[in-house]
């Protein structure tokens, strides 16, 4: 049977999530005896999500076959991993140090040619952020537990 894989998968994910939250909606505790209480809208939304999710699944059988390869996901997924590590590390090492490391790591992964820029960019960027956020706007920057 031929069908569009990505659409099929997204359809399934949507439907399952919809079902999950619909079940959760029934757990919303409220004192009100009203029909239109706090759990009403969530139930409406999740039910509709399930219906449309099913529609996506059904349509995936009618859709054109997808010829995308998984290769083009490589870069973005690597980047997402890097950024996830970055977000985890900021509360430990502090914003500036984490950012410098992150930019270095990214430019390294991408095999950035220009060595001078490779080194300068993290520092210039951090310096600018410091100037604009901490000095000009007086908005705090995330501090880490170590730094």
């Amino acid at each position: 049977m031929k069908f569009n894989i990505p659409n099929f998968i997204s359809g399934i994910i949507v439907t399952v999530l919809g079902l999950f939250f619909l079940i959760l909606s029934f757990g919303i505790k409220t004192n009100s005896n009203d029909i239109f209480n706090a759990s009403f809208m969530p139930k409406v939304y999740t039910t509709l999500i399930i219906l449309f999710g099913i529609s996506i699944i059904i349509n995936s059988f009618k859709d054109k076959i997808n010829h995308q390869t998984l290769k083009e996901y490589k870069g973005p997924i690597l980047t997402m991993l890097l950024v996830t590590i970055y977000v985890i590390v900021i509360p430990i090492l502090g914003y500036y140090l984490s950012t410098i490391i992150m930019i270095f790591a990214f430019l390294f992964i991408v095999k950035f040619e220009n060595r001078v820029l490779l080194v300068l960019t993290p520092f210039i960027a951090s310096a600018l952020i410091y100037a604009v956020f901490e000095i000009l706007l007086q908005v705090p920057i995330p501090k880490g537990s170590l730094f």
Binding site: G94, I100, F104, V119, F123, K143, F147
Partner: peptide
């Protein structure tokens, strides 16, 4: 040489940001 200077600069920045954090 290039890697060495990169390393040196990294250490410098670590020290600098540590000072910024320590002040508080």
């Amino acid at each position: 040489k290039k890697k060495g200077s990169v390393l040196l600069m990294m250490m410098l920045m670590i020290v600098l940001s540590a000072c910024n954090g320590e002040g508080n």
